[in-house]
Design a protein around this nucleic acid. Structure first.
Lengths: 151, 151
DNA sequence: TATTGTTATACTCTATAACTATA
DNA sequence: TATAGTTATAGAGTATAACAATA
């Protein structure tokens, strides 16, 4: 009876993290030309669908804390991709909206996301890609993964 | 012809990142009780197999820059889990080794990694787990993913 | 009192590059 | 001159908590 100490690569979590980090880093490099980070892309894509989102709601949607959203929004405002407006109905509240420049940029960034995904997963068949997606979605469901910024 | 702007969840990279982040965060929480981060665990697990590794080699093995390894080693040394020794053969070189405490801790951390993986992927059948692993390994091979710290 | 958003602090990780000491 | 390692700086992300303004 030897005490077994499992290898790093014995865990699915290890492989998932390894592959995921490479996909994200590859995407981040593509976004770098447009001076946008992955987190900024996610926020912008959300604001593209739903114009005028409160920072606290955006935080909930993309799983960041409110403090983190403030910093992220500050950066996007510096780049003139997003604007902050007072909420007419609630004196405490703010509303985040894409600027014209920001809105025009989203389709370009979406194309970069498409390219990145297509290139990275090109070696899988359509069936394998569907299978992988279903598996990941099941893991999300069955582990009850929620986007919950602890705040 | 409408210009299609793909959704965030249209990409496999999105799901991979979402699931991977949850697995890693869950593991990080388990490690927190032992005051160890995921990156620290990876370094310690490497040093467990291969006693006396040069920082530059460790950097290569786990995909961090040399500067990052120095900082990580500093933290582990503060916690008395790792020691730094001069290389007798090369006056410039250093060697990193686990302390007795560090060595004793590795099997406990490995057990936490096992638990985390088992819990997270419990809803998959053994066959699905094998399939997922094979798919991830194929993506690593076919995208020629290497552990390369740009330095 | 509770909520909205900001601000501040601190820590991890990453990246880049300058620096030292040895080779 | 090249290499090993450290050090410094900066940016991004996370977490926590305090705070002002408003509800």
């Amino acid at each position: 009876m030897t005490a077994r100490v499992s290898d790093l690569d014995a865990h699915l979590g290890y492989w998932l993290r390894f592959v995921s980090n490479h996909v994200s880093q590859s995407f981040a490099r593509r976004l770098q030309d447009r001076d946008v980070t992955v987190a900024e892309w996610v926020a912008m894509r959300r604001l593209f669908d739903e114009a005028g989102v409160a920072p606290s709601l955006l935080a909930e949607r993309i799983g960041m804390t409110r403090g983190a959203i403030t910093k992220l929004a500050d950066r996007l405002i510096d780049k003139e991709l997003v604007a902050r407006r007072p909420d007419p109905q609630d004196g405490r509240a703010q509303i985040l909206v894409l600027t014209a420049r920001g809105r025009a940029l989203v389709p370009e960034l979406a194309a970069l996301a498409d390219d990145n995904d297509a290139e990275f997963f090109r070696s899988l068949t359509a069936q394998e890609r569907r299978g992988l997606r279903r598996l990941l979605e099941r893991l999300v469901d069955q582990n009850e993964l929620k986007i919950v910024p602890v705040d």
